[in-house]
Amino acid sequence: MLEIRIHGRGGQGGVIASKILAYAFAMEGKYVQAFPEFGVERRGAPVTAFIRVADGRINIRSKIYEPQHLIVLEPTLLSAIDITEGLKEGGFIVINTKKKPEELNIKVKNSKIATVDATGIALKHRLGSSAAPIVNTAILGGFAKATGFVKIESIVEAIKKEVPIKPEENAQAAIDAYNSTIM
């Protein structure tokens, strides 16, 4: 079973990202769960969302405390909170940043770090506003590229089904991110 945690700020679309990613996995025949941090959300405040993926029915229904993989929508969170809390060794960390993986100071044993400029891609496709670009669809392209767990075609299909506003632009953002992710 895969357990993934998404970090973002309220309003960036982290919770929607968890649903799109879950949907993409489901289209490939997987059983999924996607859920937000249980509680109330505030715009701008750190937000987390979670995904479980398995080949069979998922019985466990508690929260995820020790994820294997991380998706980080917001580079400023790296200095604001401990994004690696509970993170298992050896997983993927996919981060929205202009920096290269080796320029980041993240110390988790054997983690494979991938970076992608999801903000730049979102701005290029005019997703959200220039002050608050919506980066959730772009980063999923980066996740597909870095991990290989899910096909980019499934991500694109899930975006087209699940995103009501600018589905084509969002899908293209994911593809652009897929093609520009650095490991």
Binding site: K19, A22, Y31, V32, Q33, A34, F35, F38, R61, S62
Partner: peptide, 12 residues
């Protein structure tokens, strides 16, 4: 249904 554990959890 349990709040959050089902109500806000998306699944197949």
């Amino acid at each position: 249904l349990d709040a959050f554990f089902l109500s806000h959890t998306s699944e197949n």
